[in-house]
Computed example of a mutant assay.
Amino acid sequence: MARMIFVNLPVADLTRAIAFYEAIGARKELRFSDDTGACMVISETITVMLLTHAKFGGFTPRPIADARKATEVLLCLSAESKVAVDEMVGAAAAAGGGADPAPKQDYGFMYGRAFEDPDGHIWEVMWMDLAAFDAWRAQQSAA
């Protein structure tokens, strides 16, 4: 079995958060969802657990950070192309998120943008041409 990652995020409005993540391509897994949390499957190996503040608070003795005021974590998803990066950020904005809370990154071999979900969690979306990166890195090493 491939190693998986489960990202747990506190959300103020579970219904709104579910709708947002569905709009950017996640699928709700009903077996692991109830009125206090939703399991949102992004890929075979990436799952986001959206948890009400009360539910999330049961897993940690620390206060829940306000993601609009402090950076708790930066999450990054890969994309298959530059177009796919732009499509995901566009879908996030159309679903009530914020597009480009940080500047776009375009290095030729790598292209990235970011979006903010309705609770302020920032997700980066990156595409990379590994062959072009390897050529760039070889050129840097030779210089």
Rank of each mutant, 00 (worst) to 15 (best):
K69R: 14
F56T: 04
L50S: 00
G25L: 06
S141Y: 11
K55S: 10
L9A: 01
G25M: 06
L50M: 00
V125T: 07
A131G: 14
K69L: 08
G98F: 02
F32V: 01
A19P: 08
Y107E: 14
C39Y: 05
F115K: 03
A91I: 10
D106G: 04
E124M: 13
E124C: 12
A132K: 10
L130N: 15
Y111F: 03
M128E: 13
G97C: 03
T52W: 09
A84T: 02
W136E: 15
I24S: 03
R62V: 07
L130K: 15
Y107C: 08
S78F: 10
Y21W: 06
A79L: 06
P103K: 09
F6M: 10
G97M: 08
P101G: 05
L75W: 08
P61F: 06
K28Y: 04
F133G: 11
R137A: 14
G98P: 00
A91G: 05
A138L: 09
C39A: 12
G120D: 02
R137E: 15
A135R: 13
K55Q: 14
A143L: 12
I24C: 00
G58N: 10
F6S: 12
E124P: 05
I18P: 04
W123I: 05
L51S: 11
D34R: 04
A114D: 07
D35W: 07
I18E: 09
M40T: 03
T52E: 04
P101K: 07
V73G: 02
G57S: 12
A2G: 04
A131M: 11
R137I: 13
A84H: 01
F59W: 09
T45A: 11
A95C: 04
S78Q: 13
A99T: 01
V89C: 01
D129H: 08
M1P: 06
E116P: 00
A94C: 04
P10T: 00
V73L: 13
A79S: 11
L9Q: 02
D119M: 04
I24R: 05
D134C: 04
D86L: 02
D117Q: 01
G25Y: 03
P61A: 05
R113S: 00
D13R: 04
K28W: 03
I46E: 11
D129R: 06
L77D: 05
A65Q: 12
Q139N: 15
S43E: 02
E87T: 12
L50G: 03
R3S: 15
A131W: 07
D129W: 06
T52F: 12
A94Y: 07
P63I: 01
V7F: 08
E87A: 12
W127K: 01
V83Q: 12
F115W: 03
M1V: 10
A12D: 10
A143G: 15
Y107P: 09
G37V: 02
A2L: 12
